[in-house]
């Protein structure tokens, strides 16, 4: 017989550790955006796959039960059903975990939605390593790569709650297929990225002349923190946040390549096929420069708490600072 004292409960790491502006889920931004859209656009409908509580589409369902549909655990069906509803004039938000959309539903996303430019908004939650305890099987770090490669598909990775909400609303008013990427955890609120959301537009948050840090998604707060830390060390790091990974804000990327000595990209996604390679692709053609990619280094994740996994996989301000210092020293900038 075991004693209750023998059970050592793992201490829960607060998510996120600290932020003067607080923290909230990006998927709550999705849900609140949907609720807003419920009022604004009567033809917005939501389809979920037995994960409505987890994706928070249930928040919309509570208010608009007649506009919420559940396919059961059938993501492929959901995506093609959404395409069918868009043909008939609805604006469906098809939602599930990113894992089950980008990989299992890849054919349906490509052929039912992207090919005919169906006006479907694909809302993928639980993306990235910070999905946490469910482990590698559920931590999709490859979805941006897959989705970027599909013609006609716009790919948006909001940075915090408010941007997620605004991006959700903007997506509904945009004609054509959109992939929206949200996380599971709570992430820092970043006032610098609030305000009108324009698809395809980046936000320059810190000016700088030595290097540029490009971020997408929740990495924006780490990018800002890194720039502030570097400033204390006498390095001027520009921070550009790109919530739209496709189409990329090429002009701002090229300008940064011209005006700063090197570029660092930070994303909660594989370094293969994501923001880093998108930027490297643009700069290689227009203004070749060094691009250093910070992300998941072509490995599967593992179970753990969100915040400890972000530490473990090197997705923190300190990792960006170390990279910038290393490159500065190595290249003699």
């Amino acid at each position: 017989m075991k004693n209750i004292e023998d059970i050592h409960i793992v201490p829960v790491i607060p998510s996120p550790p600290s932020s003067e502006f607080g923290a909230e889920q990006t998927k709550k931004g999705f849900a609140d955006g949907l609720i807003e859209l419920g009022k604004l656009l009567p033809n917005v409908v939501v389809i979920d796959t037995d994960v409505a509580k987890a994706t928070r589409s249930a928040d919309f369902q509570k208010i608009y039960p007649e506009r919420h549909f559940n396919t059961g655990v059938a993501e492929q069906n959901m995506l093609s059903v959404a395409a069918g509803m868009s043909i008939e004039g609805f604006i469906p938000f098809a939602t599930s975990f990113g894992m089950f959309i980008a990989t299992r539903g890849g054919d349906q996303l490509r052929n039912s939605i992207c090919y005919p430019k169906a006006n479907v908004k694909v809302a993928a939650t639980h993306c990235g390593i910070s999905t946490g305890g469910d482990g590698a099987s559920h931590q999709i770090n490859e979805d941006i790569a897959i989705c970027r490669s599909f013609p006609n598909l716009t790919v948006i990775v909001p940075g915090d709650y408010e941007e997620a909400k605004q991006a959700t609303i903007a997506a509904a008013y945009f004609k054509g297929p959109v992939y929206l990427r949200y996380g599971r955890d709570t992430y820092p609120i970043v006032p610098e990225i609030h305000g009108k959301f324009e698809i395809g537009k980046s936000r320059t948050i810190r000016e700088g002349t030595d290097c540029t840090i490009f971020t997408t998604g929740i990495m924006v707060s780490e990018g800002i923190k890194a720039s502030d830390m570097l400033k204390e060390k006498g390095i001027s790091a520009r921070v550009v946040h790109l919530p739209t990974v496709k189409p990329l804000d090429n002009e701002v990327v090229i300008k940064a390549a011209q005006e700063t000595k090197f570029l660092v990209t930070v994303e909660e996604h594989s370094i293969i096929g994501g923001l880093g390679e998108a930027i490297a692709g643009v700069t290689a053609e227009h203004h070749p420069t060094r691009v250093y990619r910070i992300g998941i280094n072509d490995v599967f994740g593992q179970s753990g708490q969100s915040q400890e996994l972000l530490d473990l996989y090197g997705l923190r301000a300190i990792n960006i600072v170390e990279k910038v210092l290393e490159v500065t020293k190595l290249q003699g900038y």
Partner: peptide
């Protein structure tokens, strides 16, 4: 009416259209 051809998509899309109607 609909892009099809990778097999299996069609009945789901039909469902989405029929539900909409």
């Amino acid at each position: 009416e609909v892009s099809t051809g990778t097999l299996g998509l069609s009945l789901s899309t039909t469902c989405g259209m029929a539900l909409s109607a």
